[in-house]
């Protein structure tokens, strides 16, 4: 399966709940797919406007294909996230958590130490010790030849979701 097919499959799987933009440029990097999911929960008492509390949750999926992956590519990605997290995530006073899924697919095989660095990848940022919410990043790498996915610890539960068999 090549990256175009993967892109279409990814788009159709996300389109139900995500607002999707193709070929979006964010902080100097080009992503072939940008998906945003947003929900607001509130508990009210007696009247709908008497809200006891409310909070918002954001989810972003940033996908691009890259065939020559190596360790510095992953490190460079970490730098990119560090600098650009604030203009990726849209926040307001009620926003609780924002989860960014960095999805990379590669049509070539991936060497072991890249996979190790993906597994070790960690990024967590809280605003005012979590009072104003926080951001978690899941890094998921999909090998299109063997249909295998590697992810950091946070992405473990989700990586199956991004494997599309023929």
């Amino acid at each position: 399966m090549n990256s175009n097919e993967y892109l279409n499959k990814l788009k159709s799987s996300l389109t139900k709940y995500f607002d999707i933009e193709l070929d979006k440029e964010l902080g100097g990097r080009q992503f072939s797919l940008y998906g945003r999911y947003y929900t607001r929960n509130s508990k009210y008492f007696a009247l709908r406007k008497f809200e006891v509390y409310s909070f918002k949750i954001n989810e972003y999926v940033l996908y691009h294909n890259c065939n020559n992956l190596d360790v510095d590519y992953i490190n460079e990605l970490k730098e990119y996230i560090k600098d650009n997290v604030d203009n990726i995530v849209i926040r307001d006073s009620e926003t609780m958590s924002s989860a960014i899924t960095l999805l990379i697919s590669s049509e070539e095989d991936i060497d072991n130490d890249t996979i190790k660095s993906v597994k070790k990848f960690k990024f967590y940022k809280s605003y005012d010790w979590g009072f104003k919410g926080w951001v978690n990043v899941k890094l998921i790498l999909v090998n299109l030849k063997t249909n295998q996915a590697y992810s950091n610890s946070l992405g473990r539960r989700e990586k199956k979701r991004f494997i599309f068999l023929k």
Binding site: Y53, S54, F55, M96, S97, G130, F131, K132, G133
Partner: peptide, 8 residues
Amino acid sequence: VAPVWILL
């Protein structure tokens, strides 16, 4: 006053 996910 604190956001709900902190304590409540």
